[in-house]
């Protein structure tokens, strides 16, 4: 039973990280119907920014969880700036071009950012310090769930709640929902659609950066390529849940996280990806729009 619980919580942790990244994919797709392939790189840049900030702060004699928080905040700002700029440079000029052009532009941006970090930093794996101390009260359960995992779960939960409030109750959230349903009509009721798109990229990049910092601190090392792998997985999670749907992305991420965790735990870690993608294929056969994806409801 302990083993099952460990795998369950492990899957939940993985799922949380996927969810933080998948939100960016699904929100951007919901608004401009573009798969933002450079999104994984934004996550990677978040992790690198945090590493640099942590190195500087360590030299200044700081330590512990306060440092992680500061690094996280800087990473969020940095990644958001990258996300905003990528949209302005690579996608906005192609707003009215065929969809394939924007997609190619996204792939180009992804490769550009990877190689840019590769040249600016290094191709080697860099150690990322684990800054979250072991919690004493967790001692009896330490074999089931670690303190880093708890921090990941709690942070993800907070981000989800804030995001739900943003989308459901704020003015910009309403504008986002309207824009995702009908862009032209959103303009006609006076919504500044360009601003909505920018905000979407900023919010998506911010959550991805939080994910990047957390997972780097959990795994303990990063390189320029981590964004690609995590990005692909999160993209799969978003499609699994129904791309364009925010709750769908979260659910898809947890489903993917559990699939991988249980496959690793009960079969073999070699089969982790096999099961994950098999599951994707099965779900798409029976629900092509994803678990929570919706079919056209609009009357003509």
């Amino acid at each position: 039973m302990d083993y099952f619980l460990e795998l369950f919580l492990g899957g939940l942790t993985r799922g949380s990280i996927y969810a933080l990244i998948a939100l960016g994919y699904t929100m951007v797709y919901g608004i401009i119907e573009l798969i933002n392939f450079a999104h994984g790189e934004i996550y990677m840049i978040g992790a690198f920014t945090a590493l640099i900030v942590i190195s500087v702060l360590t030299l200044m004699g700081m330590n512990g969880i306060a440092m992680l928080v500061i690094a996280g905040v800087v990473a969020v700002m940095y990644s958001s700036a990258y996300g905003y700029t990528v949209e302005k440079i690579a996608y906005k000029p192609l707003r009215n071009a065929p969809r394939l052009s924007a997609l190619i532009s996204a792939i180009g941006m992804s490769l550009f950012l990877q190689n840019y970090v590769l040249l600016a930093q290094t191709s080697d794996f860099l150690p990322f310090p684990n800054l979250i101390p072991d919690f004493e009260f967790m001692e009896p359960y330490a074999h089931i769930i670690g303190s880093t995992e708890i921090v990941i779960l709690i942070t993800t939960a907070i981000v989800m709640i804030l995001l739900t409030i943003l989308i459901k109750f704020t003015r910009i959230g309403k504008a986002m929902r309207a824009t995702s349903q009908d862009k032209t009509m959103a303009m006609l009721v006076g919504i500044n659609v360009n601003r909505v798109i920018s905000v979407t990229f900023i919010v998506g990049s911010a959550t991805a950066a939080i994910g990047g910092v957390l997972i780097a601190s959990h795994v303990g090392m990063i390189n320029f390529y981590v964004g690609f792998i995590a990005g692909i997985k999160a993209f799969v999670a978003a499609v699994l849940g129904g791309i364009g749907s925010v709750p769908g992305a979260v659910l898809g991420s947890f489903v993917l996280g559990w699939t991988e965790s249980f496959a690793t735990g009960y079969v073999s870690s070699d089969y982790e990806d096999v099961f994950a993608f098999l599951f994707l294929v099965l779900i798409l056969i029976f629900r092509p729009a994803g678990i929570l994806g919706r079919s056209e409801k609009n009357k003509v």
Partner: peptide
């Protein structure tokens, strides 16, 4: 477009373009 709307020009477009997943009240709100 949003500046033009703020001047007091409003359109009921062809095909109505109701926000399909927003409720009637939310559509009015928009």
């Amino acid at each position: 477009p949003d500046k033009i709307v703020s001047l007091g020009i409003c359109q009921v477009p062809e095909g109505r373009r109701i926000f399909p997943y927003l409720s009637v009240a939310e559509n009015l709100d928009m």
